[in-house]
Write a protein that binds this DNA or RNA. Structure first.
Lengths: 346, 346
DNA sequence: CCCTCGACGTTATACGTAAAACCTAAAGGC
DNA sequence: GCCTTTAGGTTTTACGTATAACGTCGAGGG
């Protein structure tokens, strides 16, 4: 029924309404409310304007302001999944820095897995000034590149920075993996299973590369790799399959993130293996999951909020025409109960 | 250095540029690209326009469109925390329905805990048509109410629907809690610990009320309540404190959500209590955490995506001037390994 | 006494789009 | 032959804001 339309359309007041109420011109309202009235409008008049705005419940029309200014002071943060605590931290940091500069941050969780939806980015697109995107959400990023928006990639390959208006911010993933590998090597482990992410991106490629490089000059070191989707269930299945092949069983499972490690826990339990006596397990990210499982997980802590802060700072720099300096943020190995020396080959 | 400004400002092409390139008026471009050209523009001309738009890489200016149309086709989803898988599901459902109607959804994670930041909503505000808000993010909602935006509350008290342009969508939390309570009562439990959320909102109040109501007519039934922030660590501390008081130990812990239940697990383990032999534990939400812990958790599964779909449908109805019908969506008890009959009082 | 200058505003304009109102020419009806 | 209709567009306007450009009035200086 589109018939019943009330006549008193309660349309939101505009700056012109405020002007009428205060007995001034619309321009004066804009000056006062935009805090640019010093030496242009008398204090008494300004107060009258503010009072009128308050009375009418005036809220500026964002669309009009954005159109006039040619910018929106809004940035998009593209994340691979909403459930990831790590990206929650990234958001928090990014939002804080953005707010300090009068910017807002809007989230776009890239639809996972199910192939590229028809223009996966378009529906979420608010009017944006720039984009901060995780390298893990690569399918969504492609659509964004075409829009010519300033773009800062999170944890993408710093070597290739093709387009202008594009920058990269990184965590020192390589060093994190180095610390994990050295820790396990020092404990005496030689046979590794690498439970890797099925989605390929720089941040995961680095892990594999560093694990291989670090063990390359260790005699008798052996690495097997198995890939899995980034869920506990998928990891459990993948780990179970890998642990039941006839080959000599690995003494340590190195996982690309904590969810995968939790899957490894469940697979090990299912096979009657004790952690860490029969099998050491390491994770990556240090999510709350890492301390929820038993035993608590040895993993690599990432400075998520700082990462978000740096990313947003880089984006603001790009928007400002400056070139952001790019550094890799340090990460930290957290040793807990899931790693120990392997049982001697009896 | 704001001195170096390049002269070839690569400004985005407008519909007027497209018009020039295609040799038509700007209005014709708008008609063609807006798919309203049937019987108004010749097919050949339309094709010329589309080609020009493609060549120039034309993207319509959202701010201008929003201003012109007076609406943005964008809704805000206010969630209490980004890490919550439940709200990830809600988002997925809401985004799907929104997309079917040409709407986009933007997320606003209400800053948790640390008191109301200065206008917590303002910084994230894109130009919005309406808001979908969790009742758990109550502080942010207050700011939104003032803006006069159409608002649909998720899991808020359906009894009080004060403002116009406001509706409520609910899950049948009461029934979920009824099922939990009945399950435990049937197993023979009589002494309960209710590990409740420290943040108060309708969705949690219902749990407490139903637990009390359901056990009221059971002789010798006893309930103690302890509140905790919604994190594993806080829950562990709270549960530990409650389990070490001199009073007779409860045989079952009923938790307001799965995170709290995980905290209860850790507290129990720390005290040498076995689950479920010495202590039954129940959760709420059925997050992936529920199957990551050992033993897997008996909990209540919530139809998160359906909830998001219904919420967005209700918001779209309100925006359309219709009155959404309000129903409580069914929930389901999932019985796993964390509940069993209590040990006989030997 | 004229000119300048600062204080206090106002008027006018542009941002890019959508759509209502308008125009023109050719085809068709009677 | 004149009137109507229809296809195929164009001209114009409005959305609400920010700001550059422009007035105006009184005080003060020379």
């Amino acid at each position: 029924m589109t018939t019943g339309s009330d006549e008193t359309a309660p349309t939101r007041p505009t700056s012109r309404d405020v002007a009428r109420a205060a007995g001034v011109s619309q321009a004066a309202v804009s000056l006062v409310l935009g805090d640019k009235w010093r030496g242009r409008v008398a204090e008494a008049t300004a107060e009258r304007v503010r009072a009128a705005a308050r009375d009418l419940g005036y809220r500026p029309n964002l669309a009009a302001r954005n159109l006039r200014l040619g910018r929106t002071r809004t940035a998009l943060l593209v994340v691979p999944a909403l459930t990831n605590e790590f990206f929650a931290g990234v958001y928090t940091g990014a939002a804080r820095v953005a707010a300090e500069h009068g910017f807002g941050v809007v989230l776009y969780p890239s639809p996972e897995g199910t192939g590229p939806a028809r223009d996966p980015f378009d529906s979420a697109r608010a009017a944006l000034d720039g984009v901060l995107a995780s390298s893990m959400a690569s399918d969504a990023v492609a659509a964004i590149r075409g829009d010519g928006l300033p773009l800062v990639m999170l944890d993408s390959d710093p070597g290739e920075t093709p387009a202008t208006g594009t920058a990269t911010v990184n965590l020192d993933i390589a060093d994190g993996m180095r610390q994990v590998t050295d820790h396990l090597l020092t404990l005496g482990h030689r046979r590794f299973l690498h439970l890797a992410s099925a989605v390929s991106s720089w941040t995961f490629d680095v892990r594999a590369h560093e694990l291989a490089a670090r063990t390359a000059h260790v005699p008798s070191a052996d690495i097997r790799t198995v890939r899995s989707a980034l869920t506990v269930q998928a990891a459990r299945t993948a780990a179970h399959a890998a642990l039941t092949t006839p080959r000599p069983r690995p003494t340590a499972i190195v996982c690309d993130d904590d969810k995968l490690a939790t899957g490894a826990y469940k697979a090990a339990r299912g096979l009657g293996l004790r952690i860490p006596e029969d099998l050491s397990v390491t994770g990556f990210d240090d999510l709350s999951l890492a301390t929820a499982v038993e035993p608590e997980l040895t993993t690599v802590r990432l400075p998520a909020e700082l990462f978000g802060e740096r990313g947003m700072a880089a984006l603001l720099a790009v928007l400002d025409g400056r070139t952001p300096e790019t550094t890799a943020l340090p990460v930290e190995l957290v040793i807990r109960g899931s790693t120990a020396a392997p049982a001697p080959p009896s």
